[in-house]
């Protein structure tokens, strides 16, 4: 049982990792992340990269929706902007891939600011509709601005190159995607130790009160949109290098719902929630396939017959989480930590 954590300075009070246990676990996690590419096969590495991309985007959405309280259903469109930016810069300008990914974030942030302008006047469902409208407009642009986007056929993206080394396989891309995502998650965690992050939370809790406290709503709401879109843009940029083809159908509207579901299942307004939610939404459908594999010897034609059941089970799992754990997976982690803190006593 941990008795207490003495914090002797304000800096210590604001620290992300305040106990030796936390630092040790973080060390284990980082070691696992470093060793993973040498231990996992191509399938699991592919999934690891996909999870990392989704974590980056979900973290961005959590900044906007979870921390600032602005509901957005445009995350997929912002990712698409990032993906197209990378495809354009890689194909037409030939700039280095890290610069392209940064440009993807910046262009998406700019688009995010434009889309966020209505947020001063509308919120909740109305804002969600406004972001859907923006997605539709962006989809139209992707389809019809043929000289830049390649129209409905899209653009093929050349593999990322780093000092002449081609980053085409999940193994190689892991060393780009996972560190970038880690940096982004770390950035988001730090954000909420700053004035800007706290202003976002104040806006979420009561925007009128926040304004009375001296927080300029428009500036901070647009900043939140810009940050969220930046995250989506970078995620989209990594996506473009990962899948190497970008078309208007690469980021359907359902992807935005996927990310909203991820942050809700993971835990709104928590960084760890974004990570767990994105991992849950990406991995659980894959893991459920193993159940189908198990049943294959006893259930004739299991693959075809049980796939719809698998989809139902996945949906039911999400509903179960919402009903039994409305604060998301993050709350389960908190409870587990509390259990060990207080052990052998019960909470």
């Amino acid at each position: 049982m941990r008795i207490a954590t003495a914090k002797e300075t304000y800096i210590a009070d604001e620290g992300l990792l305040v106990t030796a246990t936390q630092r040790a676990w973080m060390g284990v996690l980082l070691a696992m992340l470093v060793l993973a590419p040498f231990m996992l096969n191509q399938y699991w590495l592919y999934l690891a990269c996909l999870v990392a991309i989704n974590v980056a985007s979900a973290t961005g959405l959590n900044i906007l929706t979870g921390y600032t309280g602005l509901v957005s259903l445009g995350q997929a469109a912002f990712m698409a902007v990032g993906a197209y930016t990378v495809a354009f810069f890689e194909g037409q300008v030939g700039t280095p891939f890290l610069l392209n990914i940064l440009a993807a974030g910046l262009v998406s942030a700019l688009v995010g600011v434009l889309v966020g302008i209505p947020s001063l006047r509308v919120k909740g469902l109305y804002l969600a509709i406004a972001t859907i409208a923006a997605s539709v407009i962006l989809h139209f642009v992707f389809t019809h601005w043929v000289s830049v986007t390649g129209g409905v056929r899209g653009i093929n993206v050349a593999p990322a190159r780093f000092f002449g080394l081609e980053l085409a396989s999940p193994f190689a891309l892991y060393f780009v995607i996972v560190p970038i995502t880690c940096l982004m998650v770390l950035g988001a965690a730090n954000l909420f130790r700053t004035r800007i992050g706290r202003a976002f939370i104040a806006i979420r809790d009561r925007d009128i009160s926040a304004e009375v406290l001296g927080i300029p709503l428009l500036r901070y709401k647009l900043m939140s949109f810009a940050l969220s879109s930046f995250y989506a843009g970078v995620a989209g940029g990594m996506w473009a290098y990962f899948f190497r083809v970008v078309t208007p159908e690469s980021f359907p509207f359902a992807t935005s719902i996927f990310f909203l579901a991820a942050v809700i299942v993971g835990g709104l307004g928590t960084i760890i929630g974004s990570v767990l939610g994105a991992a849950f939404m990406t991995l659980v459908p894959e893991l459920l396939k193993y159940v189908v594999d198990w049943l294959a010897p006893i259930f004739p034609n299991a693959g075809a017959a049980l796939s719809p059941v698998r989809t139902i089970v996945f949906g039911a799992l999400i509903i179960l989480f919402l009903v039994f754990e409305p604060h998301g997976l993050a709350e389960m982690v908190r409870r587990a930590r509390r259990f060990f803190h207080l052990w052998p006593f019960r909470t």
């Binding site: 659980v284 193993y290 594999d293 198990w294 010897p297 799992l317 039994f324 389960m332």
Partner: peptide, 17 residues
């Protein structure tokens, strides 16, 4: 219930077949 759900998820991670 949540533990069972998580257990089922983890268990399914190991390819039995």
């Amino acid at each position: 219930i949540m533990g069972l759900a998580a257990g089922a998820g983890l268990a399914s991670a190991f390819p039995g077949f």
